[in-house]
Structure formats: C-alpha cells, structure tokens
Design a protein around this nucleic acid. Structure first.
Lengths: 315, 315
DNA sequence: GAAATATTGTCTATATTTTGTCTAGTTTAT
DNA sequence: ATAAACTAGACAAAATATAGACAATATTTC
C-alpha cells in the first residue's frame, strides 16, 4: 500500500468521475473529505479513491447518491458486490394501453435507422418500464429483431444498421437479463446457436427471457458445434439447453448437428429449440424429442415447466 | 549499469522533457539536484534520469508536479506502477512491476475455464474498483482477450469457452466502461472491424476505452465492408473511425478495403487503426494516413489528441 | 393523473494557484 | 565565432476552488 496522496485530477482519471461531481459530492453529502495542501488543494488517499469508485459503481446501478454517500465504506463494498440487479426495483406494472407498444417499436426502428444508440437504449428502457421486462421482450425486442432481419434482406437498411442494432440490443438484453439478486441454486440454462446458425439475436432473447424467469443463464453465442454445446452443458450441470434457429432454414448439416447433440447430452438435460426456423427442422426435432417453442410465450411455459422439478426438489 | 554522467541535452533526449522543464523542476521543487562540472554545467546520474522519467510518467497520469516532485524515488515507483498515462507523446515505460493485477487476471482465466459467468463478472468488477476503469481495461481485459485467443488456437480451451468469454466480456465492457453521465455534445467515434476481420473483442476494448475517455461511441461490430463503415460515419457526423485488426494478418482483400474506406471518408473524419495485426498492413495504413495504435496506451493518446479540436471549435 | 417538491449532475463566473514557456543577458564549449 | 548552457525574471495558459444558478429526473402529494 502506498501512502501517497492523489490530486483531484489524478482521481478524475482513475475513477471516471468529473471533478465537478467529486467536489459536489463532498459539499452536499460529505462523501469523502480529502486533506488539503497549504494552499487549499485537495489530496485524496487510496482509501478515499476506492470509496469514490464504489460510490460511482453503486450510483450507476441505480442507488441514489444522497443515500449511499453517508454509508461506511464497508457497507459500500457489500452494496457494490450486489449492485448489478438493483435496477429492477419497480414491479413491472402492466400497461393499460396495449396500443402504446407499437409506438415504442416505431421509436426503436427510427433509432436504428438513425444509428442513434442513445435513442435506441432510451426506447427500450421506456418500453421496459411501461410494459415490464417480459412485455418489452415480447412486444418490442422480439419484433425488432425480426423486422431488422427482414429490412436487411429487403435492402431497406444496410448491414451496418443490422450490426449496430444487434450490438445495442445485445448489451441491453444482457443487462436486463439480471433479474434479482443471484439466487444461489437456480437451474442452469445453456443458450446457444448450433453451428451454421449465425444470427444470435434470437438466442439473446431466449437468454434474457430465461434470466427473467429465474434461470441462471450461461450464454455461449452463435454457431457452436454440438460437442461444444454438450460439453458446456455437462460442465455446468445444466438443467436444459436452449437453441435458437432462425436462418438459414434449409441447412443440410443441421440434422446431423441436432441428432449429434441429442446423443451427447445426458437424458436428464432437456433440449429446447425455438426460433422462426423450427418448422423447417420439425421432423428432426421430433426425433430427438426436443421441446419446440415457436414464440416467446411458448418458451415461457416450457421454461416454467422445466423449472418446477427444481422447486419441488428444493423443498 | 553505466555510471557515466549525462549532460542535460542527453537527458532531454532520453526523457522527452524539455531542458526548460528540467531546470525549472530543479529550481522550484528540487526535483533532482545534478552535480555540476567545474564550469557549472549540470551532470545527471542514471538514478536521476530514472527519477525524471518517473516524474514525467506520473505527471502525465494527472498528478501535480509540485506535490510529487518532493517524494522519495521509492514512492515515485509505487505511484508510477499504479498510473496510466494517457496524454501526450510516448516514452518507453520502464516499470514492469506487475503488482497485484496478475491475480485479477488469473481469477478471470479460471472463471472462463469454469464457464462461470458470475465469477468472471465479479473478477472484472473487482479489478475495476481496484485499478480504475483504465487499469481494468489495460491490465485485465486486454490481456484476457489476447490470452483467450492463444489458448483457443492451442486447443487448451474450446470454442465454447471462447464464445462464452467474448459474450461476458462484451456485455461487461459495454455496460461498465461508459462515462459517468453522458455529456450532450461529445465527439462521435465509430468503432468497427473491416470485412474479413471476425474477432470483435479488440473492437470492444477500443469502444470501452473511448467511452471512458469521453467519446460517444457508435459500435458497429465485426466484419463490415468499407462503404457501410463510411456511410455510418457520415450519417453520424463522426469525428473519427476506429478499426481493430487482429486476425487474419494476411488477408489480401484488406488493402482494398482500407484504401476504399480512405477514399469514401471525408477528410475531416480521421481513421485510427489498432490491434495486433497493424504491423502486417503497415504500408497500406501509411498510404491512407491512418493513425496507428499498437496498444491501448497509444490509443489513449491518439484519442485524446483527436478530442482537442472539438473543444477549440466549440468556442 | 397532474402538480409540487426533492434530488442530482452540469454549467458559469470569479479568484487563486500552479506550471510550462519565453526573453534577455551572461558564461562556457567546440 | 557560433552553438549550447546557465540564471533570473516575466508571462500566459491551465488547473483548482467556491458559490450560485439551472435543467432534467425522481419522488411525493393532492
């Protein structure tokens, strides 16, 4: 531990807070009280810097600075360790005006066309507060993913727009997918896309939905060969594996991949397959006894069904 | 160790400091007190030169010279080990004391091998509070991205691990490394990977770093053709475009893509290229006058440099 | 649901301190 | 003689501190 003191500028570099904010937190809340030089310049110790870092982290997770600034550092550390989930403090209230959802959707599409990440995030956030996490997923995020795919094939939007939308949606979904404080023994769900399936937005939707329903999701991303998926599932003692099939709809290798996965997975690990292309591979899916979910509502019930054994066994 | 004494001119070349500054630091703060020749010329020992380099490094990290100049050299070394220069020109970094950051790194690697997303996030978060956002990026996230690439090619870990790490890192970077509160008129940076470059972790690091330095980042993801990138840049009135080149290092189409991009971009939009493969395309990059950044520290200075014109033009 | 209130980050203006650069005149080295 | 280095002093730009105003969100209240 060095006992050197840092000037406010150095603290700004390290914490990412602006000097304005650091000073105002001191003035209003006595968040940290640095020593001063003979000429009244602030000097911060390492402990104080860490405290500021914790405060930044916690406030960014949604807590109000006025409340946390007074807490002792020890408590801040605990808060920070659990700061991710605090975002969803509001119970998702069901919107009385169902028609509003289309407007959220339109706003998001406009944001995508404008390549405006802030507007897109804002649109999604508004949709989430208005419709709840599930409503947002079903009425805004899922249609958005689908529409963007078709607009891209149309040529209405370019690949840049599609990539952009995927990236923003991806991080938003991943962030929204943290439901409540980590339940210690939630069932584990592996989410991926089989080899050849490059579109990962569907898989992300699944991951977000499952996390919201209380699963511990391990997200593996797109285009993974069957042995890899099976290996990950076994290593993580997963309750189930969820795959997303969107495009292409006529990949000849898919049947092989799917049956291979079935063979490799132990029987107690269930397989759920969703996405627009499930119809195309229906025979194979039936053969390997995979649960099929044509839309997110189906998926909800399937996931809930699979969860039950856990709750029972847990008693 | 040579114990020869150096003239001030030699020290200037070695430290990058001007003779004026060296003398004024001596006069005002007794930063270093060189011996003198019989005719009053300054003569610096190796230790004194090292001390000057440390001072330079530390002041560039935001500390005030008036405070640090009085500290003993031992303490300066500690400070330098925990500092991250981001402004100004570059001097060879001397202290490679790895401090405790390697332990954060090891924790993260272990989490990747265990496919444990919570542990990985926790490791990244702890690194961030201990080292600051920049420290986390430079000392943990960047090495992690690189190591995972090599481990994958080795066969030590599977594609599933790599995908998993990418996904977690992706969302963590996107979420954690944004500025405290988004200022209204920050300069816009487009981040992408040219067509053929499939690894997006490098691009994500760039995006996170830039966001942390106060840019408004529009992230487009991997493998985009030049016209798409240029179109997005123009549409968003970007100040600059940042590309990440990692692998492959010998793509014959890359030269065409890069020159195409140069032609399509208006001259006021600068082009920054970073990543491990920059060396392989150096000729092309020089031709199109792209800024090259071989590591994240370089990138810091390049981005800071490009930010300045805004402040001036904004007046 | 709408209005009032509280919270919170940002911005401006001004005074003070810090810090890099410059000038001028002198001395030393090649 | 020309270039480099020294001292001292002066300046200007940048950084820091304080106080107050302001705008955008939350929260509460009616």
């Amino acid at each position: 531990m060095s006992n050197t003191l840092l000037s406010i500028n150095a603290v700004v570099r390290r914490t990412g807070l602006s000097a304005h904010v650091i000073r105002i937190w001191e003035k209003r809340y006595d968040a940290v009280e640095p020593t001063r030089t003979a000429t009244n310049r602030r000097l911060y110790s390492d402990e104080q810097v860490e405290r500021l870092m914790l405060l930044r982290e916690i406030t960014q997770a949604g807590q109000s600075i006025g409340y946390v600034a007074k807490l002792p550092t020890e408590q801040l550390k605990q808060l920070a360790a659990a700061s991710f989930p605090s975002k969803g403090t509001h119970a998702p209230r069901l919107s009385t005006t169902a028609t509003g959802s289309s407007s959220f959707f339109e706003d998001c599409i406009a944001a995508v066309k404008a390549l405006d990440s802030r507007a897109l995030e804002k649109g999604l956030k508004e949709a989430e507060t208005a419709l709840g996490a599930q409503g947002m997923l079903q009425r805004v995020a899922a249609p958005l993913a689908q529409t963007i795919g078709t607009l891209w094939r149309d040529g209405t939007i370019t690949a840049a727009h599609e990539h952009f939308a995927s990236a923003v949606l991806r991080t938003y979904l991943a962030q929204a997918a943290r439901p409540f404080a980590s339940g210690a023994n939630e069932p584990v769900l592996i989410v991926a896309t089989p080899a050849g399936q490059l579109h990962e937005l569907g898989a992300l939707l699944v991951a977000a939905l499952a996390a919201n329903l209380g699963w511990h999701v391990t997200y593996l991303g797109a285009s993974l060969p069957a042995p890899e998926i099976a290996g990950a599932a076994k290593q993580n003692r997963a309750r189930a594996v969820a795959l997303s099939l969107v495009y292409p709809e006529d990949d000849p290798r898919m049947e092989g991949e799917l049956t291979r996965l079935h063979e490799l997975l132990p029987p107690e690990i269930k397989l759920i397959v969703g996405g627009r292309a499930v119809g195309a591979y229906q025979e194979t899916l039936r053969k390997i006894r995979a649960l099929q979910a044509t839309d997110l509502t189906h998926l909800c019930s399937a996931l809930d069904e699979l969860r039950k054994p856990a709750t029972v066994a847990g008693k």
